[in-house]
Amino acid sequence: MASQGTKRSYEQMETDGERQNATEIRASVGKMIDGIGRFYIQMCTELKLSDYEGRLIQNSLTIERMVLSAFDERRNKYLEEHPSAGKDPKKTGGPIYKRVDRKWMRELVLYDKEEIRRIWRQANNGDDATAGLTHMMIWHSNLNDTTYQRTRALVRTGMDPRMCSLMQGSTLPRRSGAAGAAVKGVGTMVMELIRMIKRGINDRNFWRGENGRKTRSAYERMCNILKGKFQTAAQRAMMDQVRESRNPGNAEIEDLIFLARSALILRGSVAHKSCLPACVYGPAVASGYDFEKEGYSLVGIDPFKLLQNSQVYSLIRPNENPAHKSQLVWMACNSAAFEDLRVLSFIRGTKVSPRGKLSTRGVQIASNENMDAMESSTLELRSRYWAIRTRSGGNTNQQRASAGQISVQPAFSVQRNLPFDKPTIMAAFTGNTEGRTSDMRAEIIRMMEGAKPEEMSFQGRGVFELSDERAANPIVPSFDMSNEGSYFFGDNAEEYDN
């Protein structure tokens, strides 16, 4: 993207840094990872977990959730003011799984939030270390993106479920800051804005008074975040219109849905970061690795190297396929839920299948599930090659597409044709070009129609051997075009429920 120079890199967003050079960025990201790792080690000690239990991804998720809940100030305040039966607002906890007599047992633990905050700050040299908290939120978000298709949420806001490739980060909490905003897809931002506008339509006082002023500035800020994701002048001009509207209503909703559809071809720039579970960072720190000293990046080879040398386990339900569970977590670790499966298959070195073909449910185990038949197995999170994460949407291309997802959002900077089903997408653009945004709409449609099938995206960008740390010898991959490109292809993934 041309304006790259004016933006802070995501590592800076990730670490609240002012302008830093590459070495400083690597050190501050490393410091953040160190903090998460030290916190995780301490929690495993508190909970008396064995090494194996500490490497269980379900335990990692519970521990991450506990610290996120302990620092969720708004919710904590709300819980104190609106006490609900049987919930102690000062405590947080969740299921911890232990191996007892050759069987997995679930144990519900409860801790004072104050105590968890103390352990977290102690692991982070006394700081609140917001960057580390956001990092864990993005890992949870990436896992949700890989596990669930947001059909219901899309339909509720009037969008087409086939636009799911635009929904990265749709389950990120509001408090995820600049680093969170960077990884949100165009569809996620559109959905947040539509929800806001709908509230304004239904509630006369939404934009009024002292609160209304705050609401208005939040609305304009979200519009600017979305505008910054678009790469064409016409899309940005249309966002200006939406932002400046005196009284946002149905016309703005129409414009936003139009823009979301246009992003299936004229893709937005959305950041991709490899955020790993805390149970990967903990053992690495415990083994003596100093992330701050060595430096770390979320968008280069580092996460690949770390996963190459990590042992992570997962509980497996009786009829689940461990290899499929591994694929789910591998995609989440690489922030690749909406990437082209052919690119992923090449990088991973084994075939990556669409969601609907995987015999696996989510990673988390519900409290009512029976533990008797639970097994555990090693997650295979290694890769054959590594590639640089991208934040450009890439230019655009036609490809055989599917009944489910009709476009992709690249996660890796790797040369390819970008699949999208042009006739299906263009069919949504018939007729409606009147109104105050008509010239911009016409211009956007013209650009979409001009998108050429034979153009290559990320020209000359390749993948790298894991021994090639400096990215000196790019390998331009070859793809098996007979395979499906979309992950949520004609899909039956479970729906995400809060």
Rank of each mutant, 00 (worst) to 15 (best):
R416G: 03
N205S: 12
K351S: 09
L47W: 02
V155S: 14
G86I: 01
R384P: 12
S60A: 09
V183M: 07
A70F: 02
R243N: 03
V183A: 12
V414Y: 00
D88E: 08
M374N: 10
G177L: 08
R208H: 04
V190P: 03
S335W: 02
A278R: 03
I265Y: 00
K31S: 08
N144Q: 10
R361H: 03
I25S: 03
S217R: 02
E454F: 03
Y281G: 03
E11C: 12
G30V: 05
S28F: 11
V408P: 06
A263F: 02
E18L: 14
K113G: 00
S3M: 12
N319P: 02
D497S: 14
W120H: 09
Q4L: 15
N224C: 06
P453V: 07
P277Y: 04
S141T: 11
R208M: 08
S457L: 15
G393F: 04
E107L: 09
I36E: 04
G393I: 03
P474Q: 02
R384Y: 05
G37T: 04
E107V: 10
R117M: 15
R55H: 13
K7S: 00
R118I: 13
K273R: 06
G169E: 14
R99W: 07
A131H: 14
K305W: 12
A179D: 02
A451I: 11
M222D: 02
D128K: 02
E294Y: 06
P89I: 04
L341A: 10
S176T: 09
P318C: 13
C44W: 11
T45K: 07
S353W: 10
Y289K: 09
L110Q: 05
G185Q: 11
E443K: 10
S50M: 11
N492Q: 08
V414A: 08
I265S: 11
F338E: 01
R8L: 11
A493R: 15
S141D: 10
D203Y: 07
F420E: 00
D101R: 11
S9C: 01
P322A: 13
L79R: 07
N483K: 14
D340V: 09
S326V: 05
A178Y: 13
P303T: 09
S457K: 00
G249S: 06
A153L: 07
T157Y: 01
A427P: 10
D421R: 00
G288C: 13
G249H: 09
T396Q: 08
L328P: 05
L379A: 02
P89G: 12
L133C: 02
I119W: 10
G362P: 05
S84L: 12
E469F: 00
S335K: 02
F458K: 00
E484Q: 01
S392D: 01
S438M: 11
G460A: 15
M426K: 02
R348A: 09
K77S: 13
S245Q: 07
S353C: 03
H82L: 05
I301T: 01
Q327Y: 03
S457M: 01
R102F: 14
S353K: 10
G54E: 12
M66N: 12
S176P: 01
G249K: 07
R216F: 11
G17S: 07
E455S: 12
N483Y: 10
E14P: 00
T6H: 07
T92M: 11
Y10W: 00
Q20W: 01
G209N: 14
S478Q: 15
C275W: 03
Y10M: 10
K77H: 14
G169K: 13
R150T: 01
N124V: 03
H140I: 12
G35V: 06
A286T: 06
E114C: 06
G185K: 00
A323G: 10
R470S: 11
Q409F: 00
E53D: 13
R416M: 07
T45M: 11
V186H: 15
M426R: 06
K293I: 01
Q58L: 06
P95A: 14
M105A: 06
S297M: 03
A181D: 03
N125F: 13
E375K: 08
A129S: 12
M426D: 00
D51G: 14
K273C: 01
I257S: 01
D255E: 11
S262Q: 14
L166H: 10
A178D: 12
N59F: 04
V352C: 07
R8K: 00
L306W: 08
M159A: 06
A428K: 06
K7Y: 02
P354L: 11
M136K: 00
L68H: 14
M331Y: 08
M374V: 03
M136Y: 06
G362A: 09
K452W: 01
V183I: 15
G268K: 01
K305R: 15
A131G: 08
D439T: 01
N124A: 08
G94F: 03
I197E: 03
E64F: 09
R65C: 05
P474C: 00
V67K: 09
L193D: 01
A260T: 13
S217P: 00
A373Q: 02
E465T: 00
Q399P: 12
E244H: 01
E465W: 07
M448H: 05
R441E: 05
L226T: 12
P83W: 06
S486Y: 11
F412K: 08
Y78F: 15
V285D: 02
K305Y: 11
E449L: 13
T433R: 14
M189H: 12
V476R: 03
I365K: 05
R441M: 08
R267L: 06
L276C: 13
Q459S: 12
N59I: 01
R55A: 06
Y487W: 03
V312E: 06
S457F: 01
Y10K: 14
V285A: 08
P303H: 01
S217N: 11
I57N: 08
Q241V: 04
L264I: 10
P277R: 09
Q231G: 14
P410H: 09
E81S: 12
G349I: 03
A403S: 14
N59A: 09
G86S: 13
S9R: 00
T360W: 03
V476M: 08
A70N: 08
R470H: 00
A332S: 13
P477A: 09
R204E: 06
A271R: 10
I225D: 07
G177H: 06
L307A: 13
F458P: 01
K48C: 09
V312M: 15
A27P: 05
Q235E: 05
S69V: 06
N76I: 14
G212A: 12
T396R: 15
S274E: 02
G490M: 07
D128Y: 13
W120R: 02
A493P: 01
E434Y: 04
E11M: 12
R106P: 04
R65K: 14
K31Y: 00
N224T: 11
G94Y: 06
Y78D: 04
L154D: 02
L307M: 11
N142M: 12
A411E: 00
T350M: 04
Q122G: 01
H324L: 01
A22V: 15
P419I: 10
R436C: 03
P303W: 01
A332K: 12
G177T: 04
L307W: 01
F464M: 00
S310T: 13
I301Y: 13
V285M: 15
S170V: 06
T188Y: 06
E46L: 03
T232A: 09
A2V: 14
R246W: 07
W120N: 12
T146M: 03
H140F: 06
N483M: 15
I57D: 07
L226G: 10
N321C: 03
R441Q: 09
W120I: 09
R162W: 10
S383W: 02
P410K: 06
R261P: 03
D145R: 07
D421I: 11
R199W: 06
W386G: 08
E192K: 10
V100C: 05
I365P: 01
I475S: 03
Y313Q: 14
L47T: 12
G356V: 05
E11N: 07
A323T: 08
A271M: 13
A401C: 01
K90R: 14
E454M: 08
R74V: 12
E443L: 02
M1T: 10
N473W: 12
E294D: 12
K77T: 11
C164R: 01
E254S: 07
S486H: 02
S165G: 12
A278Y: 01
S84H: 01
M440I: 07
Q20H: 01
R261W: 10
E64I: 13
M163I: 15
M105H: 12
A179I: 02
L264M: 08
